[in-house]
Design a protein around this nucleic acid. Structure first.
Lengths: 337, 337
DNA sequence: TTGTATGCGTTATCAA
DNA sequence: TTGATAACGCATACAA
């Protein structure tokens, strides 16, 4: 049994002494450097194994200025969109032996700023962030710090940064078009926040689809600022209790659509007969709703993977230019519209 | 505008020089040490502010042997149970300015071992883990390393560790009893893995409830190893396609119950008329199912908070003994049973 | 109250 | 191929 319980952690120096070499030779052996004889290398490795040596990542980071850690800043892990995003990220960072340090903003600018400060203080090698877009302070800190970062899901029109988003405008258009083509005329939108690019662009897609089909938008059916299940639930309740209730709802996200389902159930409305619903994000939980939720989009896990891949490539200097990706969306019909 | 773009990060030394004091005095000022005159302290702080100084957590950690980081090891963030758990943890660690580094095991022992290795190499101050319980290797590493840790949601009968779990046996009993009291006689269980304490104990509760009511358990209605929505979906499909299908299903978790809903929908079975369903964990998403999911338990976010609190107290020496908590559960009836 | 010097565990530079 | 030594940025024992 290697290692005694009462001893302190075994360090590189312990290994070196036991193997009868210098610290630095031991380091070479363990970091796969070429300048070392196979013989000593083998010996060091054996000793390290015996002693149960684990490199201290902190010390390594301090010296090499590389923490092998990336900061992931999202709104809220309990939101299935974000958790899927994180899962995608984690899957790829894991294979490259990078750590993830997680921060939540709850879509608050101040929290976002703190989150960025925290990850920067941790000296992360790079950052993946879903900006709150309430202001630019956090992003500007990132910019000034020269830490590589990629915006996920949202981007700024007037700020030069890397980003990976999906085609929200097109998604909003398709969603609305689909509802129109199914014969709906009074289509409500439970949109996201307008200062967020995805919220705004999906809304524009909604407007444009109406225009394309020669329909007027009833301003009373436009609700914005819905970001969570709870928001969706409350807004849908208000909306559906009206005398002239909409025939269909285009929800900002599947998460928001969940809230719509809840409201519809409570009001005794059947989906899609009494109310057609279409979500966004193509989240896997949507399949379990009754009826299964029709949705738009790329799976967030996919987006997370792509973002993580791109960031790691940047960190390894394998990307010269900028990352500005707009992924295409598609409609997944499942029965709610 | 503080800081030039082309310069390297501003260090404590920069602050010290600019303020005309020694590095160490600067350190005192910034870490709120008492041995310093108000005057110099103020000066240092001002300079630090001007220069945009941010303490390097890596260096600080190396020196103080405290990273202010805790490792969180769970099965899978995309599982709503775990994401809610993480959110609870994050909420409290945030207020105490601790970082969270996240690792997933996907319930695999090898992955779990690696996850523990990783967090230990990161020198985390403490660990919160949902053990896979496939073997004890990972936990023994933790034990040997003397890093404070708390098991969440699961515990070992034969291993002396801290843990915070819920009363799974009681939960399983109540769930089954409820179904029995509603008149169901053929009650299936889509149980979790039997090597996991929560899976096993909920199953025992299921058995005991039958016994208490003088009912026999039909072994054909016992399915184990369901941990995800997908598992629940597949198992439910098989189960419900049989000629003699159960009247009710007790699912290991809400997540598994989601899969049951999907299967029921596809087979055209109405809940609760054709099939009563009861879940576990009291996850918020369950409210949006149609009908809303009846469930057992404490919210995972609450458990996460408790675990994080307890761990932080341990780290600050505010807990002398051990943490062995079994939280009580309750039934939340919503309409699926 | 302040400064000097040392060390945390590594990696990197240089000379041997 | 190897080893002595410095350095990463900070905190702390000790001296002033």
């Amino acid at each position: 049994m290697p290692g005694n319980v009462n001893e302190r952690r075994v360090t590189l120096r312990d290994v070196a002494e036991r193997a009868g070499v210098s610290v630095n030779t031991a380091s070479r052996a363990l970091t796969n450097k070429p300048e070392i004889s196979p013989e000593t290398k083998r010996r060091v490795l054996t000793v390290a194994q015996e002693l149960g040596y684990r490199p201290n990542r902190i010390a390594r980071a301090l010296r090499s200025q590389k923490t092998h850690t990336i900061g992931v800043i999202i709104g809220d892990v309990a939101n299935p969109y974000f958790s899927a995003l994180v899962r995608g990220i984690e899957k790829v960072t894991r294979t490259y032996e990078y750590n993830v340090i997680l921060q939540e903003t709850d879509e608050d600018a101040e929290r976002e700023r703190k989150a960025v400060e925290t990850v920067l203080a941790t000296q992360v090698d790079g950052v993946l962030i879903t900006p709150t877009q309430r202001d630019k302070a956090a992003i500007e800190m990132l910019l000034k710090n020269m830490t590589p970062f990629i915006l996920m899901s949202r981007y700024f029109q007037d700020l030069e940064t890397n980003y990976i988003v999906i085609d929200d405008y097109r998604g909003g258009f398709i969603a609305t078009e689909t509802l129109i083509q199914k014969g709906n005329r009074h289509i409500a939108i439970l949109g996201g926040s307008m200062h967020i690019s995805s919220g705004y662009e999906r809304y524009v897609g909604y407007l444009e689809a109406h225009k394309a089909y020669g329909l007027d938008v009833d301003k009373k059916l436009v609700i914005t600022g819905c970001m969570t299940m709870e928001d969706g639930y409350r807004a849908a309740l208000r909306l559906l209790k009206r005398s002239k209730r909409p025939q269909a709802v285009f929800a900002f996200s599947d998460f928001v659509a969940f809230g719509v389902y809840r409201a519809a159930y409570e009001l005794g409305l059947r989906i899609p007969n009494d109310l057609a619903v279409i979500g966004f994000d193509n989240t896997s939980l949507g399949m379990c709703l009754n009826p299964p939720l029709t949705s738009i989009g790329k799976s967030p896990e996919e987006l997370g993977k792509r973002a993580a891949f791109a960031l790691l490539k940047m960190l390894h200097g394998e990307i010269s230019g900028q990352v500005k990706l707009k992924l295409s969306v598609n409609l997944v019909e499942r029965g709610s519209a």
